[in-house]
Nucleic acid binder design. Structure first.
Lengths: 176, 176
DNA sequence: CTGCACATGTAAGGTGTTACATGATTCC
DNA sequence: GGAATCATGTAACACCTTACATGTGCAG
C-alpha cells in the first residue's frame, strides 16, 4: 500500500513519468525503498482511475513518447492524510541473522566465512553511501543516507564483537 | 521461502508442534522474524509431504491433541544446503523514514511529533530488549538481541541529530 | 554489432497477512 | 461471566517480484 504514497509523494516534488519515478526512487531512496515496473505502472493506472493523478502524454523524437503524471488536489489531500497517520513499525528482517541463529551445528570455519562476507558487504555499502552523501541535494536525502550509515556502522561494530566470540570459542581458520 | 528453513531450523533444536514453533519464534527470534499460523501450518504440511519432517500425534487430557513434528535426515540435509548458500541482502524498509522523506510540506510541529513518537518507540523497544537479554539462554539468542540493541541505539543517536536540525530551522513547538 | 538508456506495459507466480471457524479449560 | 491459553486449520485477499513483450537510437 505504501508504494501508492511513495508515488504520490514523489509526484509532489514534480510531475514525472513512471520511468522517471523509478530512477528517482533508485537515486534518492534506494536505501529504504524500491519500485519495480510491475508495481509502478499498475499503481499509476489505479491512481489515475481514482483521480489522484492526471496524465499528459508527451511525444518525443528518437525515443518512445512518455506519459507524465501530475498529482491532483485530491491526491495531495490523500497524501497529507496518510502522512498524519502514525507509521507502522517495520520489523528488522535479515536472512543473514536467521542463518547465523540457525547455524549452531555448521563448522566454525563456515560460520566465520559467513560473518566475514557480511562484514565486507556492509563495508562496501558504507563506502557507497559516503559517496552518495556527497551528491545528495536535500536535507531529506541526507537524513535517509545518514540513517543507513548509522545503522551500517552499528552493524559493523556488532560484527567485530561476534568475530571475537567466534574466534575464541574454537580454533581459527586461516584468514582470507 | 525462508519460513521453510526457519521451521526446519527450530525443529533441529527439538521436535515441536506448530503452536510451539510460533511461541519459540516470538520468544527467541521476534526481533528478526515472525510466523503467523496462516504460513506455519501450510508450510508444515508441505514439509511433511516432501519428507523433510515427520509427525506424531499426541493425545492430551483437558486440551486438544497436539501434532509434534520432528525433522528427518532429509530435512537436515536440506537445511545444511540452505545454510551454506550466501544469504540475500535484505533492504532496510521503514515506513517511518519514507514519511519523514515525503513530509517536506507538513507543518514543522507535525514533523516534530512524528520524530518524537519514533524516539519513544525505539526507547521502549530498547528497554524491552534489555530485559530479554537477561533471560536469553544461548549465545545465538544474545547475538540477535545485541544486533537489535545496537541498531536501536544507532537509530536513537540519529534521531537526536534530526531533532536538533528540525528545531533550529523553524520555531519550536512546546515539548511534550 | 552488442549492449545500454529510453519508455511502457502484462501475466504468472510466489509469499504472506488477516480474518474466520472450532472448542475445551483455567484464571480472575 | 469473560478473557486468556491451548491447539489446529482454511480461505480470501493484498502485495510484490520476475520474466516476458516491444521498439528506437546511440556509444563503444
Amino acid at each position: 500500500m505504501s508504494h501508492r504514497y511513495l508515488i504520490l509523494g514523489l509526484l509532489t516534488e514534480c510531475p514525472m513519468s513512471g520511468y522517471d519515478i523509478k530512477k528517482r526512487v533508485n537515486f534518492a531512496l534506494k536505501a529504504v525503498a524500491n519500485a519495480s515496473y510491475g508495481t509502478l505502472y499498475p499503481t499509476l493506472h489505479k491512481l489515475l482511475d481514482e483521480g489522484a493523478v492526471e496524465v499528459h502524454e508527451i511525444a518525443q523524437v528518437g525515443r518512445p513518447s512518455k506519459k507524465v503524471y501530475r498529482i491532483t488536489e485530491r491526491g495531495q489531500l490523500e497524501l497529507q492524510e496518510w502522512l498524519k497517520q502514525p507509521p507502522i513499525t517495520d520489523q528488522i528482517r535479515r536472512e543473514f541473522l536467521l542463518k547465523l541463529y540457525l547455524a549452531h551445528d555448521l563448522p566454525t570455519a563456515d560460520l566465520q566465512a559467513m560473518v566475514r562476507a557480511r562484514r565486507e558487504e556492509v563495508t562496501d555499502m558504507l563506502t557507497r553511501l559516503r559517496v552518495e552523501r556527497e551528491v545528495a541535494q536535500t536535507p531529506q536525502q541526507i537524513w535517509i543516507i545518514d540513517y543507513a550509515l548509522q545503522l551500517g556502522e552499528a552493524e559493523l561494530e556488532w560484527i567485530r564483537n561476534i568475530q571475537k566470540q567466534i574466534t575464541t570459542h574454537d580454533r581459527v581458520a586461516s584468514p582470507a
